[in-house]
């Protein structure tokens, strides 16, 4: 399965629109029980994780059969102004588009497509975003490997 963003640099201004496309391949319709797509932020670091979902869509088995898996699906959402992506000493705040596949066998497969939320009016038009964005220690987006995370027994 794959998720791709509308901006190549993966940097979005707060309050602007995010467009992404997703697709599931190499999984048959019979094996799927549900798909969840969410746009969310979560924290990493020493503290317990905070997670907040900004956009959420769940496709049940019936809906997946109706739309099929062959075509690319898209999602559009208006991003909030805050919290901005942040890379600190104890806390890292990351934004991502997360896709979670629920298989009939009880397994779950998760993939994240990270992106950066930066302050409004900090991206100059026609230029790709530089590393001088908000945060103490800004890091370029890293794509998590498209690996299956078994979280159900």
């Amino acid at each position: 399965m794959s998720v791709s963003l509308c901006r190549e640099d993966g940097v979005y201004e707060g309050g602007r629109e995010l467009k992404a496309t997703w697709r599931v391949s190499r999984v048959t319709l019979d094996a799927l029980s549900a798909i969840e797509i969410s746009v969310l932020w979560y924290t990493e670091g020493k503290g317990d994780m905070d997670l907040h979902v900004h956009y959420f869509q769940r496709l049940e088995e019936e809906q997946i059969r109706r739309s099929g898996l062959a075509d690319q699906q898209s999602l559009t959402c208006l991003l909030p102004a805050t919290p901005l992506s942040y890379h600190g000493r104890l806390i890292r705040l990351r934004w991502c588009v997360r896709m979670r596949l629920f298989l009939n066998s009880g397994r779950e497969i998760v993939t994240d497509q990270p992106f950066h939320l930066v302050a409004p009016k900090s991206i100059q038009p026609g230029k790709s975003h530089r590393v001088n964005a908000i945060s103490l220690g800004f890091q370029p987006p890293r794509k998590r490997p498209d690996a299956g995370n078994d979280s159900a027994g």
Partner: peptide
Amino acid sequence: SNVMHSFVGAHNAV
């Protein structure tokens, strides 16, 4: 100009 804004989560805060 390049500092993080105030932030409060359930377990983390700036």
